[in-house]
């Protein structure tokens, strides 16, 4: 039963999202859509001098799964080094949601993650090139 996917924590994140809004001076931001159901997620990151995500905000509209996933992702990635987020796998994102998603709904659940991947791979680090 997919009622399982509308569990309390998903509805909580959907109705009272973590860091939904905008940063005054984000280091980077990116927006993407899930054309299947018209979900939109914009992710704004503040990345500090040590290449860690110090703040993560999102804005968007769409289904409960896409919006809750963005909220959960923002909560998770603050304090994490960009290098670690580059290694983050889609399954880790799905695991964070703690609900079973069908293949079609995974597109909703992974939209924010996809935006994050675009951001972290585009981020220029100051690490010395070896």
């Amino acid at each position: 039963m997919t009622e399982d996917i509308y569990q309390e924590h998903i509805l909580e994140h959907f109705e009272s999202p973590y860091h939904k809004g905008h940063l005054a001076h984000p280091t980077c931001c990116h927006r993407d859509k899930n054309p299947l159901c018209g979900d939109v997620i914009e992710l704004q990151l503040k990345i500090d001098a040590s290449d860690c995500v110090s703040e993560a905000y999102f804005d968007g509209k769409g289904c409960a799964i896409s919006q809750a996933a963005a909220s959960i992702l923002c909560e998770q990635i603050e304090g994490k080094p960009v290098a670690e987020l580059k290694d983050m796998q889609a399954q880790q994102m799905l695991d964070l949601l703690h609900v079973p998603l069908t293949a079609s709904r995974q597109k909703c659940g992974l939209l924010a993650f996809k935006v994050l991947k675009t951001l972290v791979y585009a981020h220029e680090t100051d690490e010395p090139q070896v």
Binding site: T2, I5, Y6, C37, A64
Partner: peptide, 19 residues
């Protein structure tokens, strides 16, 4: 959201389109 509607409808075997 319509996508959530379609998913919940599916719990009852009701197939609609959302998007």
């Amino acid at each position: 959201h319509p996508h959530d509607l379609a998913d919940l409808f599916n719990n009852r075997g009701v197939a609609i389109r959302a998007g």
